[in-house]
Design a protein around this nucleic acid. Structure first.
Lengths: 125, 125
DNA sequence: TTATTATTTAAGCAAATACTTAAATATGAT
DNA sequence: ATCATATTTAAGTATTTGCTTAAATAATAA
């Protein structure tokens, strides 16, 4: 009967506050999960570079492969994850697929890549 | 001798552009890696919830354990990762460690958690 | 000192991740 | 049709992640 759902004996903290926050987090559970998923995908240095590059211009898989000096399948698999989560999209021109930032990319990720500005950016054509 | 560092035969794209972007990304390699690391840590729904909660108030491990309904060691290990990357810090009050957002939390992550506002937020005390 | 509470740390493990190489598609050119 | 190019997909694998349980610290109280 004296089962306690709480982990510690509190003297100072307001129990109601804990329950309120528990409820808030719970009510937005799927929200947190979806946002975390997109952020997690941006939280890989290869994909972050891809997203940053696609913010500058559209590129095909082999462009990205050359720029990042990684294998075609490795790049393709990263792009697939971004594509599956509506973070990038592509258009076909002959055999070549040009990838670009999906217009519906979440604001959370947009905020990140918009802020990624480096010193040398001005040197680019 | 005819080794090609490029993955595809381009007709339309400017080779110099590819080389410029390659150089830019390379010169900021560690920058991308560090930023991606912090974003990756925020890109987990448990840690995203923790960061959001700590943005609202400071909490001890067992508070977070109760709010998120997860084991103490699980929470503690998440906090350790955030601590190791200067994303959170804590103060001691007796046996209790109160965690809070590290003042130097990167802007990339600040942008995210500042934007995480939910409907029910107003109901909280 | 001994016990209690708060928290961390360590060890173990299942699942997810990020590559690799090889094979499969798809479009375009001959 | 056949071949070449651009890309994806599949299978295999080493590494990382996120939990679990149990043991170790650390501060406080009796």
């Amino acid at each position: 009967m004296s089962e306690n759902m709480f982990s510690c004996v509190r003297t100072k903290i307001d129990q109601r506050k804990i329950e309120n926050y528990h409820r808030m987090v719970n009510e937005n559970k799927t929200g947190f999960k979806e946002i975390a998923k997109q952020i997690q995908l941006a939280g890989n240095d290869v994909r972050l570079k891809i997203l940053w590059l696609l913010k500058q211009d559209e590129f095909c898989v082999c462009d990205l492969s050359d720029i990042l000096q990684m294998s075609i399948p490795a790049i393709s698999q990263h792009l697939r994850k971004l594509k599956d989560n509506d973070m990038v999209d592509f258009r076909r021109d002959g055999q070549t697929l040009y990838y670009f930032i999906h217009p519906n990319l979440s604001n959370y990720v947009k905020l990140i890549i918009n802020d990624l500005v480096f010193e040398h950016q001005k040197e680019i054509i």
